[in-house]
Amino acid sequence: MDSLVVLVLCLSCLLLLSLWRQSSGRGKLPPGPTPLPVIGNILQIGIKDISKSLTNLSKVYGPVFTLYFGLKPIVVLHGYEAVKEALIDLGEEFSGRGIFPLAERANRGFGIVFSNGKKWKEIRRFSLMTLRNFGMGKRSIEDRVQEEARCLVEELRKTKASPCDPTFILGCAPCNVICSIIFHKRFDYKDQQFLNLMEKLNENIKILSSPWIQICNNFSPIIDYFPGTHNKLLKNVAFMKSYILEKVKEHQESMDMNNPQDFIDCFLMKMEKEKHNQPSEFTIESLENTAVDLFGAGTETTSTTLRYALLLLLKHPEVTAKVQEEIERVIGRNRSPCMQDRSHMPYTDAVVHEVQRYIDLLPTSLPHAVTCDIKFRNYLIPKGTTILISLTSVLHDNKEFPNPEMFDPHHFLDEGGNFKKSKYFMPFSAGKRICVGEALAGMELFLFLTSILQNFNLKSLVDPKNLDTTPVVNGFASVPPFYQLCFIPV
């Protein structure tokens, strides 16, 4: 009986604490739906499609509103004006990374994606500088992407125009580009180590996009005490870190300090320079996690976009025909596509942009946080508050993009057929937390897609009208449904 009384008292205290925290903070924060004790607004949000729920709530509470995930307040920004004001106009104040408990377990605050403060700034600055020195957006990395595009075309030829699921092959190409940047090595598509790495990356994007992960991140005790797919994700990350550590040891034994070959060499050189400046942010643990982040951000996002792009091109054969006509006119058949071609191919450029806009790969991006107490639109948001960005509300804005739910390359073309930029184009987020590999991803999408369409016609196994382009999961990332196609050599 005594234990029951204690339990009831504990629960009562928890409920009172929950109510007090919510009521004391709500006077400062933007308005929002009334949260339930302990669980907050979790029942009012469709976990399978958070973005749709945010759109519905914005119609009631406006472009800036507050939700509670458990006891934790989260300020939501919906629509271009609110997102721009926060991420661009007040970029420094909104540059923090929001709480992501599962990532905390995986990387302990290291790396480039989930770190904060001085650690994040130094690692991000170093990573950007190193990638630029190796030619991100310049010639040397373009050579690597072109080489991988040629290998991709050869792998597709091996399908002999038979029906195939493109998931694996389209994942190999961007993964190999990242391998060449980090390890100075590309792998054969049949290499077992490479296959294991690909498998872990593919599993992780599916797990991260599941409703279960949303629950884990908002009720963090689940991570330590409950079984579930989150444990598989943590094991996959541990596998990748151990693999990278092996490569780091190989580099330490063979590195030429006067001739760095890749990202690992550059990081080890930085560690050597910083060894007298303790404590340094440049450690082996930081290198492991930064490399894992580059793999995660640079492989599955690009391969998922490529997979979605081919599905949309199957669905819209008239678009595919126009792209192939432009390829034939500008590039021809006797040389590989290059980035200089893009400025002469406005329709193809528009298609690449429209694919990214339409699929809305990361509907709410990753959570941000404010780095200080900030007054925002007459609300006071306390330091450390998590900020949720609705990228969907920007990419699918119906004023900027008429009929935003329709796939239409003319969203990025003017009346004369010239490519038209849009400030609403934010597939990689915006501001200080914009994806480090934005330029690389854009290069890969253009070169891989043009190389495929230069060499193959795409054949659907069903009537294009019957192809479903609805994402199968739409949590962290929008993942396309399973499909097969035939690559018919031109």
Results as ranks from 00 to 15, higher is better:
residue 4 L to T: 15
residue 6 V to L: 12
residue 8 V to D: 07
residue 9 L to M: 13
residue 13 C to L: 14
residue 18 S to R: 14
residue 19 L to S: 13
residue 20 W to S: 12
residue 22 Q to K: 15
residue 22 Q to H: 12
residue 23 S to Y: 14
residue 23 S to N: 14
residue 24 S to L: 12
residue 24 S to R: 14
residue 25 G to L: 11
residue 25 G to D: 13
residue 26 R to Y: 14
residue 26 R to S: 11
residue 27 G to F: 13
residue 28 K to R: 14
residue 28 K to Y: 12
residue 29 L to H: 04
residue 31 P to Q: 07
residue 33 P to V: 02
residue 38 V to F: 14
residue 39 I to P: 02
residue 40 G to K: 04
residue 41 N to Y: 02
residue 42 I to L: 14
residue 43 L to G: 14
residue 44 Q to C: 07
residue 47 I to A: 13
residue 47 I to M: 13
residue 49 D to H: 07
residue 50 I to P: 13
residue 51 S to M: 10
residue 51 S to P: 13
residue 52 K to T: 13
residue 53 S to G: 12
residue 54 L to G: 04
residue 55 T to R: 13
residue 56 N to Y: 10
residue 56 N to P: 13
residue 56 N to V: 11
residue 56 N to I: 09
residue 58 S to N: 11
residue 58 S to I: 04
residue 60 V to C: 13
residue 60 V to Y: 09
residue 61 Y to Q: 04
residue 61 Y to S: 02
residue 61 Y to I: 02
residue 62 G to V: 01
residue 62 G to M: 01
residue 63 P to I: 03
residue 64 V to K: 03
residue 66 T to S: 06
residue 69 F to V: 15
residue 74 I to T: 09
residue 76 V to F: 06
residue 77 L to M: 12
residue 77 L to K: 00
residue 77 L to A: 04
residue 78 H to Y: 11
residue 79 G to R: 03
residue 81 E to P: 10
residue 81 E to K: 10
residue 84 K to V: 06
residue 85 E to I: 06
residue 86 A to D: 03
residue 87 L to C: 13
residue 87 L to T: 11
residue 90 L to T: 14
residue 90 L to N: 15
residue 90 L to Q: 15
residue 93 E to M: 05
residue 94 F to S: 08
residue 96 G to K: 06
residue 98 G to D: 13
residue 101 P to D: 11
residue 103 A to T: 15
residue 103 A to K: 09
residue 105 R to P: 12
residue 107 N to R: 04
residue 107 N to M: 11
residue 108 R to S: 12
residue 108 R to M: 12
residue 110 F to M: 13
residue 113 V to L: 15
residue 117 G to Y: 07
residue 117 G to A: 11
residue 119 K to R: 14
residue 120 W to P: 08
residue 121 K to A: 10
residue 122 E to F: 04
residue 126 F to P: 02
residue 129 M to I: 11
residue 130 T to L: 09
residue 131 L to M: 11
residue 135 G to C: 10
residue 137 G to H: 08
residue 140 S to D: 12
residue 141 I to F: 08
residue 143 D to N: 12
residue 144 R to I: 15
residue 144 R to P: 04
residue 145 V to G: 00
residue 146 Q to T: 09
residue 148 E to N: 00
residue 149 A to T: 02
residue 149 A to E: 00
residue 150 R to V: 08
residue 151 C to Y: 15
residue 152 L to R: 00
residue 155 E to F: 14
residue 158 K to Y: 04
residue 159 T to A: 04
residue 160 K to M: 09
residue 161 A to R: 06
residue 162 S to L: 14
residue 162 S to M: 15
residue 164 C to R: 02
residue 164 C to S: 04
residue 165 D to M: 00
residue 165 D to K: 00
residue 166 P to A: 02
residue 168 F to L: 07
residue 173 A to H: 01
residue 175 C to L: 12
residue 177 V to G: 01
residue 179 C to S: 04
residue 182 I to W: 05
residue 188 D to T: 05
residue 188 D to M: 03
residue 189 Y to P: 02
residue 190 K to F: 06
residue 191 D to W: 00
residue 191 D to Y: 01
residue 191 D to Q: 03
residue 193 Q to M: 13
residue 194 F to R: 01
residue 196 N to D: 15
residue 199 E to P: 01
residue 202 N to M: 11
residue 203 E to R: 05
residue 203 E to F: 03
residue 203 E to S: 06
residue 204 N to V: 09
residue 205 I to R: 11
residue 213 I to W: 15
residue 214 Q to G: 09
residue 215 I to H: 07
residue 215 I to N: 05
residue 216 C to L: 14
residue 216 C to G: 14
residue 217 N to F: 07
residue 219 F to T: 08
residue 219 F to I: 11
residue 219 F to N: 07
residue 220 S to L: 14
residue 221 P to R: 13
residue 224 D to A: 13
residue 225 Y to H: 10
residue 226 F to I: 13
residue 227 P to V: 10
residue 227 P to I: 11
residue 229 T to P: 15
residue 235 K to F: 04
residue 235 K to D: 09
residue 236 N to L: 03
residue 238 A to Q: 13
residue 240 M to T: 03
residue 244 I to A: 05
residue 244 I to Y: 04
residue 246 E to R: 11
residue 247 K to T: 07
residue 253 E to L: 15
residue 254 S to A: 13
residue 254 S to Y: 08
residue 255 M to R: 11
residue 256 D to Y: 07
residue 256 D to A: 08
residue 258 N to V: 07
residue 258 N to A: 12
residue 259 N to P: 14
residue 259 N to G: 10
residue 260 P to T: 07
residue 261 Q to G: 11
residue 261 Q to R: 15
residue 262 D to I: 02
residue 266 C to D: 06
residue 270 K to N: 09
residue 270 K to D: 06
residue 274 E to G: 09
residue 277 N to Q: 11
residue 283 T to I: 07
residue 284 I to G: 04
residue 285 E to L: 04
residue 285 E to H: 07
residue 286 S to H: 15
residue 287 L to D: 00
residue 288 E to A: 15
residue 289 N to A: 15
residue 291 A to R: 01
residue 297 A to D: 00
residue 298 G to R: 00
residue 301 T to W: 00
residue 301 T to P: 08
residue 303 S to R: 15
residue 304 T to L: 08
residue 304 T to H: 08
residue 305 T to R: 00
residue 308 Y to C: 04
residue 308 Y to H: 05
residue 311 L to G: 01
residue 312 L to D: 02
residue 317 P to M: 05
residue 319 V to D: 07
residue 320 T to F: 02
residue 320 T to V: 07
residue 320 T to H: 12
residue 321 A to D: 11
residue 323 V to H: 01
residue 323 V to D: 01
residue 323 V to K: 02
residue 324 Q to S: 08
residue 326 E to G: 01
residue 326 E to C: 00
residue 327 I to A: 04
residue 327 I to D: 01
residue 328 E to H: 13
residue 328 E to R: 15
residue 329 R to V: 11
residue 329 R to N: 12
residue 335 R to Y: 04
residue 339 M to N: 09
residue 342 R to A: 09
residue 343 S to K: 14
residue 343 S to F: 11
residue 344 H to F: 11
residue 344 H to T: 12
residue 346 P to C: 06
residue 346 P to M: 06
residue 347 Y to I: 05
residue 348 T to R: 00
residue 348 T to Q: 02
residue 348 T to C: 11
residue 348 T to V: 10
residue 349 D to P: 00
residue 349 D to N: 15
residue 349 D to T: 15
residue 350 A to N: 00
residue 350 A to F: 01
residue 350 A to R: 00
residue 351 V to T: 15
residue 354 E to R: 00
residue 355 V to C: 10
residue 355 V to P: 01
residue 356 Q to N: 09
residue 358 Y to T: 05
residue 358 Y to P: 00
residue 360 D to C: 14
residue 360 D to M: 08
residue 360 D to L: 05
residue 361 L to N: 03
residue 362 L to Y: 03
residue 365 S to H: 04
residue 365 S to L: 11
residue 369 A to S: 15
residue 370 V to G: 04
residue 372 C to M: 12
residue 372 C to E: 15
residue 375 K to V: 08
residue 376 F to V: 10
residue 376 F to T: 06
residue 379 Y to M: 08
residue 379 Y to V: 05
residue 381 I to F: 06
residue 383 K to P: 02
residue 384 G to T: 03
residue 387 I to E: 01
residue 389 I to C: 13
residue 391 L to E: 07
residue 395 L to Y: 04
residue 397 D to C: 09
residue 398 N to C: 12
residue 399 K to C: 12
residue 399 K to I: 09
residue 401 F to T: 04
residue 402 P to S: 14
residue 403 N to M: 09
residue 404 P to F: 06
residue 406 M to C: 14
residue 406 M to Y: 10
residue 407 F to M: 01
residue 409 P to M: 02
residue 410 H to E: 14
residue 410 H to R: 14
residue 410 H to Y: 10
residue 411 H to G: 02
residue 415 E to Y: 07
residue 418 N to R: 12
residue 420 K to T: 06
residue 423 K to L: 07
residue 423 K to R: 14
residue 426 M to Y: 10
residue 426 M to D: 05
residue 429 S to I: 05
residue 430 A to V: 13
residue 434 I to N: 15
residue 436 V to C: 07
residue 437 G to T: 02
residue 446 F to S: 01
residue 446 F to E: 02
residue 446 F to K: 01
residue 447 L to T: 06
residue 448 F to E: 02
residue 448 F to M: 04
residue 448 F to C: 02
residue 449 L to N: 00
residue 450 T to I: 10
residue 451 S to I: 07
residue 451 S to C: 09
residue 452 I to H: 00
residue 453 L to V: 05
residue 453 L to T: 03
residue 454 Q to V: 03
residue 456 F to N: 02
residue 458 L to T: 01
residue 458 L to W: 02
residue 459 K to V: 10
residue 459 K to Q: 14
residue 459 K to R: 12
residue 459 K to E: 10
residue 459 K to S: 08
residue 460 S to V: 03
residue 460 S to M: 03
residue 462 V to G: 08
residue 463 D to H: 09
residue 464 P to G: 04
residue 464 P to H: 07
residue 466 N to D: 15
residue 467 L to A: 02
residue 468 D to L: 07
residue 469 T to S: 07
residue 469 T to R: 02
residue 469 T to L: 12
residue 471 P to Q: 05
residue 471 P to S: 06
residue 474 N to D: 10
residue 474 N to R: 13
residue 474 N to E: 10
residue 475 G to E: 05
residue 477 A to Q: 07
residue 479 V to T: 12
residue 481 P to L: 02
residue 483 Y to V: 02
residue 484 Q to C: 04
residue 484 Q to P: 01
residue 485 L to Q: 00
residue 490 V to M: 11
